[in-house]
Computed example of a mutant assay.
Amino acid sequence: MKALFIGGTGTISSAITKRLAEQGRELYLLNRGTRNGELPAGVKIIEADINDEKQVAKLIEGMRFDVVADFIAFVPSQLERDYRLFAGKTKQFMFISSASAYQTPLSDYRITEGTPLSNPYWEYSRNKIACEEFLIKQYREQGFPITIVRPSHTYDERSIPLGVHGSKGTWQVAKRMLENKPVIIHGDGTSLWTMTHNSDFAKGFIGLMGNIHAIGETVHITSDESVTWNQIYEVIADALGVKLNAVHVSSSFLDACSTEDYRGGLLGDKANTVVFDNSKLKRLVPDFVATVRLDQGLKRTVEHILAHPELQAEDPKFDAWCDKVIAALDAAVAAVNAE
């Protein structure tokens, strides 16, 4: 199999790249070369900015692929560019959409690929829906061989997956835990969430590559394990060797008093209970099973970050904001009790 990945070094794509390299597949990565230092041997690089369509067209002139996958397309114009570049050059075009495109709020917490797409809270999700609609139109009218993949919350060893954090990542939350400071959990922490280790995602994705039954299909790839946010934070605190000091705050309140995108990231995503039905994926990839249990995966992630100081990006602005929010809640409770 000869494959081309647009991107190939992100949280999701890096695990797929690694696994394909281990299998000896012929893999090309088209990217700007800024994160290629740790690529496995055998991976070929086409160094270019995908947004420079003329340059890319020259570089891939005469090339044909079994699979082309775009991991970094977010708006329809980028898919229109991909169609111009790869129509007639690939047997399968795979687009990474998002499970956040599913109906929000859900009418049924159990999500299948037939769940309606609608997210009034998050522009990111609405753009992904528009991307899907463009590709489906090309499949129906032009025979463009698409497969749409919807990941949910996928993580690796480089970042602790959390619900509420600042623009510089999630380390500051872990640092607050280590310092015995209270940490914010959105809502009451009892809503169910699904996190998928990128190595498990890679198994499902590779099973869809070159799969004739996946052409024209939309498939989500997630773990079958659902846990509460309280459990997620407890596991992280345990991995850090500290006791969790949690403060539960309404997602709507967090959105109202933050400059971060909590409207999209929380109200349009993580504040909602989600349980994924992976029956379709398992029909298409019969041997798929997610084997990294969340508590084990999170502990490995925490251990890796503790051993790599370069991954410990501090965020004083977010830290101060957390203190301010918690102080405001304490003041409100005191004011009500004083009446």
Results as ranks from 00 to 15, higher is better:
residue 173 V to G: 00
residue 123 E to I: 04
residue 145 P to Q: 03
residue 254 L to T: 01
residue 86 F to A: 04
residue 202 A to E: 08
residue 243 K to M: 06
residue 240 L to T: 01
residue 246 A to I: 00
residue 149 V to G: 00
residue 35 R to E: 04
residue 14 S to G: 00
residue 115 T to F: 14
residue 85 L to A: 12
residue 168 K to V: 02
residue 208 L to K: 09
residue 171 W to H: 02
residue 112 T to F: 11
residue 283 R to L: 07
residue 121 Y to D: 05
residue 290 A to P: 07
residue 263 R to I: 01
residue 78 Q to E: 15
residue 93 F to T: 10
residue 33 G to W: 08
residue 296 Q to T: 12
residue 7 G to E: 04
residue 198 N to L: 09
residue 329 L to Q: 05
residue 156 D to V: 01
residue 106 L to G: 07
residue 174 A to S: 12
residue 42 G to R: 02
residue 106 L to T: 10
residue 72 I to V: 13
residue 224 D to Y: 01
residue 40 P to R: 13
residue 330 D to R: 14
residue 175 K to F: 05
residue 175 K to D: 10
residue 269 D to N: 05
residue 14 S to T: 03
residue 23 Q to I: 00
residue 289 V to R: 13
residue 186 H to G: 11
residue 147 T to I: 10
residue 252 S to G: 12
residue 60 I to C: 06
residue 280 K to M: 00
residue 46 I to L: 15
residue 97 S to G: 13
residue 51 N to P: 01
residue 196 T to M: 13
residue 222 T to P: 07
residue 113 E to Y: 14
residue 92 Q to P: 11
residue 53 E to Q: 10
residue 160 I to T: 14
residue 112 T to Q: 13
residue 289 V to D: 15
residue 143 G to E: 03
residue 223 S to T: 15
residue 339 E to C: 10
residue 326 I to W: 07
residue 284 L to R: 02
residue 17 T to L: 08
residue 325 V to I: 14
residue 119 N to I: 12
residue 145 P to L: 03
residue 290 A to K: 05
residue 16 I to T: 10
residue 130 A to T: 03
residue 106 L to Q: 11
residue 298 L to Y: 10
residue 33 G to Y: 06
residue 88 G to N: 12
residue 155 Y to P: 06
residue 271 A to L: 02
residue 12 I to Y: 07
residue 269 D to Q: 03
residue 16 I to K: 01
residue 193 W to A: 05
residue 134 F to C: 00
residue 226 S to T: 09
residue 317 K to R: 12
residue 203 K to V: 15
residue 216 G to Y: 08
residue 302 V to Q: 04
residue 133 E to K: 07
residue 35 R to V: 05
residue 298 L to C: 13
residue 181 K to C: 07
residue 51 N to K: 13
residue 326 I to S: 12
residue 22 E to L: 12
residue 147 T to L: 12
residue 19 R to E: 05
residue 52 D to R: 14
residue 21 A to L: 08
residue 230 N to V: 05
residue 109 Y to V: 15
residue 98 S to Y: 14
residue 222 T to Y: 05
residue 79 L to W: 07
residue 280 K to C: 00
residue 133 E to V: 04
residue 70 D to N: 15
residue 114 G to I: 12
residue 300 R to I: 03
residue 55 Q to W: 04
residue 271 A to Q: 00
residue 7 G to A: 09
residue 214 A to V: 07
residue 58 K to Y: 09
residue 164 V to T: 13
residue 67 V to H: 15
residue 320 A to D: 13
residue 282 K to A: 02
residue 276 F to K: 01
residue 331 A to S: 09
residue 11 T to P: 00
residue 255 D to I: 03
residue 36 N to V: 11
residue 173 V to K: 05
residue 83 Y to S: 04
residue 37 G to T: 09
residue 169 G to N: 11
residue 81 R to D: 04
residue 212 I to N: 12
residue 323 D to K: 14
residue 261 D to K: 03
residue 144 F to L: 13
residue 36 N to Q: 08
residue 115 T to V: 07
residue 124 Y to C: 05
residue 157 E to P: 01
residue 6 I to H: 06
